[in-house]
Amino acid sequence: MGEMIDKLSLYFSYPFVRYALIVGLLIALCSSLLGVTLVLKRFSFIGDGLSHVAFGAMSLAAVLPVMIKDIAAGISSSGDVPEGARTIADALSKVSNNYIVLPITLLAAVLLLRPGKNAKIKGDAAVAMISVGALAIGYMLMNRFPTSSNISGDVCSTLFGSTSILTLKEDDVRLCLIMAVVVILIFVLFYNKIFAVTFDENFSKATGVKADGYNLLIAIVTALIIVLAMNLVGSLLISALIIFPSLSAMRVFKSFRSVIICSAVISVICAAVGILASILLSTPVGSTIVTADIAVFFVFYITGKITKRA
């Protein structure tokens, strides 16, 4: 026990580990807030589709400096990279990837859930088309314009999070903090409207609530959460971070407010346990957090069964 405490003390003496814990807990909190709404409205697949879009956007952001240099060298008659292209590429390499991933993911959310009945491709077909296309394009870009000799490692890190949460830059931390505050404020300010749209969308429309607009707001906030969670669990495990705490809380509690509070507590605790366990056991951060969420789900599932029988 003493060795574990000494190891944690050593790790938390480094600022990047403290940043990882703070950002991880904020991401877990934001994910749990809208998780209940997404599950009840059967929007879970939207989160999964947008996470694939975020993978494609992250791949584009990672290879963009290399792509600019290669294209500029190909156009140049001498075969060398022009100074202007090199300057642009170097500037982009210093910018946080989130500044590129965020607008692309938000645009995808708007396209998928914008109001309108005249769309030629709707629902799950549109989600499947965009998500699969983003995955394919992202992987193709990473192979065509590799940023390192370990392409498989880069892809695995983007898909499953790996140690990217421990390599956050100050800009990443600052952007995560701003987006987390925005998500929490949106949820608090529009709580009653989100509640109404979640449980009875038709009645909400009849009473004058702009349900389509709030559905779009939910999609935009979901996109923000996904961009936040990319660094924590990777694009393939984001849905688990959103869904499992909500499903766990629903096994025991029935009221909307109680489920949200319990989901937030579960998500934050699992994130903290997952990050600490990954440090001690040298396991991937994202997979460890999701494993903790799965374990808690089974505990709440059994508790719910026992409570009903009692």
Rank of each mutant, 00 (worst) to 15 (best):
L102P: 06
S78H: 12
L64A: 04
K94R: 11
T105I: 09
G74W: 14
L112W: 12
G79K: 13
V81C: 04
I68A: 05
I104R: 02
E83T: 08
A89V: 07
V66A: 10
V81Y: 01
L64M: 12
L112R: 05
A108S: 01
G74M: 11
S96D: 14
S77G: 04
I75M: 08
S93M: 10
N97F: 03
V110Q: 00
G79R: 07
A91L: 14
T87P: 00
M67P: 04
V110D: 02
P103C: 13
I68C: 08
A62S: 07
I71E: 04
L64Q: 06
S96M: 03
A89D: 00
I88R: 08
A73Q: 06
D70I: 00
L60Y: 15
I100L: 14
V110A: 04
A91I: 11
D80E: 10
P103W: 15
S78Y: 14
L113V: 10
A72M: 10
L60C: 10
V81K: 05
N98M: 13
P82L: 02
P82M: 02
V63N: 01
A108I: 01
L111E: 08
S96C: 01
D90C: 03
V95W: 04
A73W: 15
Y99M: 11
L107A: 11
K94G: 08
V81M: 04
D90G: 06
T87V: 13
P65A: 09
L113C: 08
A89E: 00
N98W: 11
A109H: 08
V81G: 00
I68H: 04
A109Y: 14
P65M: 06
N98Q: 07
A85P: 07
T87S: 13
L112P: 04
D80Q: 08
R86K: 02
V66Q: 03
R86M: 02
S93V: 05
L92A: 05
L112D: 03
I68Q: 06
S76K: 08
D80S: 12
L92S: 09
L113A: 02
D80A: 13
A85K: 05
I71G: 05
V81R: 03
R86A: 07
K94C: 09
A73P: 08
N98R: 12
G79I: 09
I71F: 14
Y99I: 14
G84M: 13
A72D: 08
G74R: 11
I104Y: 09
A108M: 07
A91V: 06
N97E: 13
I104E: 03
Y99T: 01
A85L: 10
D70Q: 08
Y99N: 10
G74L: 14
L102N: 11
G74Y: 15
I71P: 04
L113R: 15
P82I: 01
L92K: 03
N97Q: 15
T87G: 05
V81W: 01
I68S: 05
G84F: 14
E83Q: 10
